[in-house]
Design a protein around this nucleic acid. Structure first.
Lengths: 214, 214
DNA sequence: ATATTGACACGAACTAGTTAGTACATTATT
DNA sequence: AATAATGTACTAACTAGTTCGTGTCAATAT
């Protein structure tokens, strides 16, 4: 597949679109929406600025396309973990580990979400695709919580969205605030040592909380 | 030295500086560094754009001044809680409540920190004032942890900076990600109901974690 | 087989509006 | 008088978006 023998294939719209989106993602995640330069994106692309406007219409629309693509990617990754067969405690530990690793592995996504929050989620709200995004993790959590209460392993009665927030907050913060936190406390938050310690810590903290006597 | 303001006082550099900083804080926290407009700041100030450059030299320097002022403010608030006389568990609950309320009450600070992280803490690193900022909360936490281990109320051995991160992450995330999280899960994260529930939740989760058998 | 056509894909150079920063003059304070 | 503080009006550079033109491909006509 390395060499396409056909010389004549030059137009490749889908590839061009994806190329623009990839470059734009990097530009926006490193400079923000206002700080990102369309000319800089054009220069790093195999194509031209004209094409950016041809395919996406405006800088904001391009940013939104970047955001939607990022959310589409996480949604596709989130499904199929087969947690419903596991005992509740193991299922939850697995889910927390997955969330932790997801944020760790996708700093671009974390940064885009941070940028969206600075803009008060204005673009996300205008996107029906993202707004109607139904995060399946909530149903999974609700199921785990219910089973855990039923079999007596969880004694606390917690709202699944609150629980998701408790988990997400730590995993997200570790990545989103890596630079300021690292600077102030002189810590490299991307070191393997801290990765392991923190991953264990969130899981333990959440499980201890759910198991404790209210 | 507290002088009564002179009648003929018209030049008031310090007031002008503070006025500019206040307006600039609002501009940068709502639009980011690149998105914030010097002209917009000048228009909302009692003074002119000329004065912004007279006092601060450049847009970036103004932004840094805003950031430094924000950090100076939190440092001054952080001290004197007189936690060392309280029993460890109560001391920690008080400290967590204070952190929680601080982030809740200072969304501007939270937003500035988010913005700094998008810029990879570049400005903070150039500021010796912020870089050398020694967050006293770590010593307080270390003291509480030691006392808690000594009197047997805490069974886990936790690094104070890790603990600070665990606490901060939740308190910060609630504010920093208010918009995207609120949009996706259709929740108003600034409602009094959630304020109470979440404040109790972090404290319980952290305490349960420290008290649990490792 | 080859020419024609039209919709799509693409590029270089340009434009209109914006934005950070400045020159120069003026007023206030000591 | 000397210096600090301030206002007006500007400019040089930048930046989002556009104009106008060329190249590609496949279907149809000749």
């Amino acid at each position: 597949m390395a060499n396409e023998p056909r010389l004549s294939r030059k137009n490749d719209p889908e590839k061009t679109r994806q190329d623009i989106l990839t470059v734009a993602t990097e530009e926006f995640t490193t400079h923000g929406l206002a700080g990102g330069r369309v000319d800089a994106i054009a220069a790093k692309t195999r194509t031209s600025k004209r094409m950016i406007y041809y395919y996406f219409g405006s800088k904001e629309a391009l940013y939104l396309a970047v955001l939607e693509r990022a959310y589409r990617k996480i949604r596709s990754l989130e499904a199929d973990l087969e947690l419903s067969n596991m005992p509740p405690e193991l299922a939850l530990r697995t889910l927390i580990g997955t969330t932790f690793d997801h944020d760790e592995a996708n700093p671009d996504f974390v940064r885009l979400v941070s940028i969206e929050n600075i803009h008060q989620a204005a673009h996300m709200q205008r996107s029906s695709e993202i707004r109607e995004l139904n995060i399946p993790i909530i149903n999974t959590l609700a199921d785990i919580l219910e089973r855990g209460r039923d079999d007596g392993s969880f004694r606390r009665d917690v709202d699944p969205i609150d629980l998701h927030m408790l988990i997400s907050a730590f995993c997200f913060f570790r990545v989103s605030n890596r630079y300021t936190f690292g600077t102030i406390f002189r810590r490299d938050l991307s070191s393997p040592e801290l990765y392991n310690r923190h991953k264990t810590m969130v899981a333990d903290a959440v499980l201890d909380y759910l198991k404790a006597q209210p």
